[in-house]
Every structure is written in C-alpha cells, then in structure tokens.
Amino acid sequence: MNALSIRGLEKRFSKGLGKGVAYALRGIDIEVAPGEIYGVLGPNGSGKSTLVRIVATLLIPDAGEVRVFGHDVVREAKRVREVVHRVSTEAAFFKKLSPLENLLYGARLYGVPGRAAARRARDLLTLLGLPRDKLSRPMEQLSRGQQQKVAIARALLHPPRLLLLDEPTTGLDPRSKREVQELILDLRVQKKTTIFLTTHDMEESERICDRLAILDEGRLVAEGRPAELKAHVSTDGREPSMEEVFLALTGKEWDDDSTAQT
C-alpha cells in the first residue's frame, strides 16, 4: 500500500461573485511509496500549498481521490489526521506561549499525556539545538530558524507516518536551512517516515528528494528522479541545472512572476 495516492485531483476556488473560478490544481496523479522523500517543485502560486492542504484534510477537493495509507482524506479524515503531520512556512504558533507550552498543547491534541509530552518536548528541543534559555520564552522572541525547529519538534512529538513539509526552509539562513535538511534526512533513516515536501528551492529539491514532481499552474508537468528529469531535457550531453529543467518543461523562466497563479 502506498503512503500517498493521489488520482485525478482537482481543486478550484471562486474568484468572487460572477467572476468565475480559478483552478488551483488540475488532473494531479501522484503515488508516493512508504519511506520515500517526494518533492513537489514549483514557483509561487503553482498549487503546492493547496496540494499539501488537501492531503492534510484542511481543504476538500472538488474532484479526484486522495488516500493516505489507504484512508480517504475526505471520508476518513480522522484516520488520516492520526498518521499525518504538516509543517508549513509560516510559524503556526501561539506567539506569546513558550516553545514548551506550544508543544504541550500540540502533544495533547494528539492524545499524548502531559508529563510524557513535557519530557519528550524538552528532549526533542534540546536535540534540535534550541538553547535551554529559550524553552520557556515566548515564541515571538525566537528567530525564524529556531521557530522552524520548534515546528519540526512539534511534528515529532507524535511521530507521523507521513510528514508534510510545505516549504520548510523558506526564509531560513543557510545554516538553519542546512540543519533542517539534515533533520529531514535523519527522520527518514531513523523513523522510516515518508516525507512529502514542497519547495521552490532547486538545490534543496535535488539534494534531499528521491523523486520530484514539477508543478506549474496547477498541473503536473513532469515527474521522476532528479537525474531522470535532467537526462530527459539534456540535449547536448551536458548535465542541465534544475532551473534549466524547469525552463525546458514549462517554457518559463524560474523567476518569471507570470508563473504565479493564485
């Protein structure tokens, strides 16, 4: 059984009364095997976050089917939520609460008793290198990199079978970015966690993903191992960069703002 199975997925949003609809996702088919790190690469507005939100049961699709370890994300949402966790770009924390208080809240939502959660939260935050004096300070006093580490620690309090990472390193400094990437790789090795990651960082996608999908204007334009994608578009025997792969497959420059859709 696949960790994630997406078939014929479609999602559209109303542009406003009488203004029609905007398609965020069209005809998406993806299969992710257990233990795989699967990356979705695409520019801003390509539909990456919409895709992650649907898998996380935060959005209901208009057509198609999404299953997580065999459970349908609409009809069996509770079962899906028990095995999925999502870490997003924005720090979804209570700003005045401390990392420990935020983690305790998160753990209890997943049924982890307070005492066990507190011990585990301390261990995880220390393991991730969060300074001891920051454990009880309000989240708003932590740096962006530290907040992202807390977000990852929160996801690991109740280890998910499928971890959804929505641009987890966006906005981080190079060192923090590297640390988070190492953490993702460790997770797969130590916990056998399946990881579904979205990014618009070419280097990151190539470095940590087993397979990649390229998403553009809500459509999946290519899928494969990074080396396969490169080989697919290479014409002169030279290994192209991921930017060149994107250009060849979508006809658009990576930084082109016109690629933004929603």
Binding site: K96, L97, L104, A107, Y110, G111, G114
Partner: peptide, 25 residues
C-alpha cells in the same frame, strides 16, 4: 491510548492552552 482517554487528554489540552494564554496576556 484508548480513544476516550485521547479525547479527554485533548480536552484538557484546550483548557491548559487557554490557561497559559491567560497567564501570558
């Protein structure tokens, strides 16, 4: 953890979160 106990822990989670928020604000 039995389902009912999980829900009770989560219920306390919401209460404790709001107590923490009240203290911080």
């Amino acid at each position: 953890i039995p389902p009912l106990r999980r829900e009770l822990i989560a219920t306390w989670g919401f209460v404790a979160r709001n107590i923490h928020l009240t203290k911080r604000y």
